[in-house]
Design a protein around this nucleic acid. Structure first.
Lengths: 114, 114
DNA sequence: CCCATACATTCCTTTTTGTGAATATAATTT
DNA sequence: AAATTATATTCACAAAAAGGAATGTATGGG
């Protein structure tokens, strides 16, 4: 009967400030955990927890490459939904094109620093 | 700093099966509490709780008319967001054009029965 | 004024979620 | 193989949400 359980579950995964922030960092490209940790200003273990939450909700997908794990958004349409929500509450979050973070040792930040 | 708190709060209000069901009943028009209670198959007090939740989140608006209180969705754009979410999880909830409910004594259901 | 009806609120208990701390795993380097 | 680095998991506790039950309020009718 409940055609509402699944969407509710997805919405619940989205309904968290830190997770929204992570998703916003994944708007244009995949990122490694160390990068997300730096961007989001939380401990690595905590970020991993939220990433697992988003992964289990089917929102994120991960890819291993050596020591690093890269996360990406499975379905860009989530951003369409989030943009509507942002508009409804009068918020616009800018899409930063891969913020290079000093604390992040990943290749993408490395080349940005060169 | 947190441009993510507000959207997260709105999403949390949406992230609940019963509340989604209520919203779906409000797709095309306002409805009174007694009608929503009948449609949603929950106790009136419980429905009132969820309605308050949605009202406090700024999603619903109420209008008094005699004994009855009619609720309506403030911003139809929430349905756009919800439709994307539904599509993402592979659900489509049909828009029933004001289901006439036997248990509901409101004028809209009355005229439907005549 | 009393009663019935429609809706709201408050209180309480159970369950779920949030978050920190510590620890585990797995690939890489030396 | 040991150490290092990147990431994941587990445990414990606090905080919040879910939901039931009882009760409160307000409007309209007799």
């Amino acid at each position: 009967m409940d055609a509402y359980r699944l969407p509710a579950k997805l919405l619940k995964a989205l309904a968290h400030p830190v997770r929204l922030r992570i998703l916003n960092a994944l708007r244009e490209d995949e990122e490694c955990v160390c990068h997300l940790t730096a961007v989001v200003h939380h401990r690595q273990a905590y970020v991993s927890q939220q990433l697992r939450f988003l992964r289990q909700a089917g929102i994120l997908q991960d890819r291993k490459d050596g020591l690093r794990v890269y996360y990406r958004v499975k379905e860009p349409r989530v951003f369409d939904a989030l943009e509507i929500v942002n508009a409804l509450v009068g918020v616009k979050n800018e899409i930063a094109p891969h913020q290079v973070v000093a604390a992040c040792p990943c290749p993408k930040c490395e080349t940005g620093r060169e």
